[in-house]
Design a protein around this nucleic acid. Structure first.
Lengths: 331, 331
DNA sequence: TTGAAAGCGCTAACAC
DNA sequence: GTGTTAGCGCTTTCAA
């Protein structure tokens, strides 16, 4: 019997109608009698017919659209809250979202895989832009946090320079004198490179601050470890900035275990603005990244790129979102 | 000039070669001289050529595969940890994952939208199975938690009957006498229906327990509110089961604010087994759902369905995962 | 190494 | 209401 895939042709033959009639039945089009539609639908399920999404999208006037989203991890609420925002923003436009995370492979591999299924790819990238663009095979890329420097790459920049400068100023106003940083470092990967957040910290946190940095895993546990090491080396630090909220939460926990009161003895500030931080004790002060704005900007860039009439290459589109301090009680 | 889309034909013409040669260049195939490949690639980027994923997947021998994943929310770590596990499991098989959440629309709408882009759809559904299967248009569905009762629907059941019975027994062994439940209810939706977890609780929690139930929002805040109401109505409850870990965390927080010691004065247990629960104070005891097993079972079902040679309909495939108590310190 | 022809499975426009 | 004819844009034979 049927060896390969069951096509519209098979259904048409079995039902004794034309292909077009099958299409009409499957897609609920009006120009068909209820009787034949039911008949066709029935034989379709009997045969186990499943329309080819590739064929229908190729032939149809309006094609399905989808955006790839590349995140650092689905186990960090920052990324998943960003995904939630992006879903909120693009679903009304009828776009689908394809997920990928760095836990599954490096940038370039992920982009190569997504480029076959997505019309645009948004996300966090760390690899060289030229390689990413090449892997994208013409699919536009929008990278978060880093500026775009090659054609085909666009960006939503997170301005941590300005944000961290402002944050440190505010902290000084609250009595902070000696800052320390718990920085993120991928342990196994080997090739550690200072993050943009670290560079901004070192630039604005005052004399000696560049030394008061420990590198830890990007997790609650990592933050706890980081704080222990930081305090062991620099007991007189009075204010700790953590790379992200998860690490800050770990740091607070560790401080409390060690009998250090937060914020009385030690101020702790995270980065991200997770809603989770509000329900900790004490509630976490943080440099909040407006994820809704981020998602909206990214979607706008993608929308503009996809709807553009003229053929590419388009000049890189760049938007900026500036994180803002969100004062709760840990600093 | 070029009004519509730029096709392989345009590139071929501009480069002065045949379509086939463009394909060879774009896909890095061997039978082409480095010289012509570079030339073709260059003109492709000049023209801004982007291969149609629908056309290439239609023509190519091996087609891209993707799984749709329908979750309750991307703002609840349970769902995002499940997504992370599914990504871990399916990426090695070369599948992509399309995300959708109930926050974006009802079941049937989501399935209808995904069915145009996915080869199978896995997830949490609440709508009528027949409507879901119809909306899927032949795309196989795997539902989590609920058993499958119609052809085209498959399932990974979470056996809360057995799990909650065992949990309550263990709790009695730990001294629990009067149970209360903080149940999940979608507030705005109106149509509240008892969850499977509630029904299992009512069946096994002993006389009077069916009354000691409050319905709250599926969030930390909801759990806090729920606990306040439960204690107001039933001050003598000594053990609270929450619908999920997030709600349990809120309940613990609220209890502590009210001067109730956990677990000394009140035992609190959640459901899910979030890793986050381990870093709370006290660490959260919970009925843990093995998300990796869940993801693996779902992927296996999908894999079996997609690779099956015979034409459908296939009988419903059903697997079961039984949650297990994870004792930490809150109960 | 390159090109020409023949589909992949479907929808759109038009006939009937 | 229903069938017929053309494509959609690409990859795959197979010849040259």
């Amino acid at each position: 019997m049927a060896v390969g895939r069951i096509t519209i042709e098979d259904v048409a033959a079995a039902a004794g109608v034309s292909r077009q009639t099958v299409t009409r039945a499957m897609n609920g089009l009006p120009e068909i009698s209820a009787r034949t539609r039911d008949h066709v639908l029935r034989t379709a399920t009997e045969l186990g017919y499943r329309p080819s999404r590739f064929a229908s999208n190729l032939a149809a006037r309006r094609k399905a659209r989808s955006v790839g989203l590349v995140l650092g991890s689905l186990r960090n609420p920052y990324y998943t809250e960003l995904a939630a925002e992006l879903l909120d923003v693009v679903t009304p436009r009828g776009w689908q979202v394809l997920m990928a995370s760095h836990e599954q492979g490096d940038d370039v591999e992920l982009v190569a895989a997504l480029s076959g299924q997505a019309d645009a790819i948004v996300g966090y990238f760390t690899g060289p832009e030229a390689a990413l663009v090449a892997a994208a095979r013409g699919v536009p890329l929008v990278q978060v946090e880093r500026p775009a420097t090659v054609p085909g790459m666009h960006a939503v920049i997170l301005d941590f320079e300005a944000a961290i400068e402002a944050l440190l100023d505010d902290l000084r106003g609250r009595g902070a004198r000696r800052f320390g940083l718990i920085e993120s470092g991928r342990p196994a990967t080997g090739g550690y490179r200072p993050t943009r957040r670290r560079r901004a910290y070192e630039r604005f946190a005052g004399p000696g601050s560049a030394a008061r940095v420990v590198v830890a895993d990007e997790s609650i546990r990592g933050g706890a470890d980081g704080l222990a090491r930081l305090r062991a080396e620099y007991p007189d630090v009075d204010t700790v900035l953590a790379f992200n909220d998860l690490m800050a939460m770990g740091a607070i926990q560790r401080a409390q275990l060690d009998g250090v009161a937060v914020p009385a003895d030690l101020r702790v500030v995270g980065v991200d603005g997770l809603s989770l931080g509000a329900v900790m004790t004490p509630p976490l002060s943080t440099l909040s990244i407006d994820r809704r704005a981020l998602a909206t900007e990214a979607a706008d860039i993608v929308g503009a790129l996809l709807d553009r009439a003229e053929p590419p290459p388009h000049p890189s589109v760049v938007r900026t979102v500036t994180p803002r301090p969100l004062w709760r009680e840990s600093a």
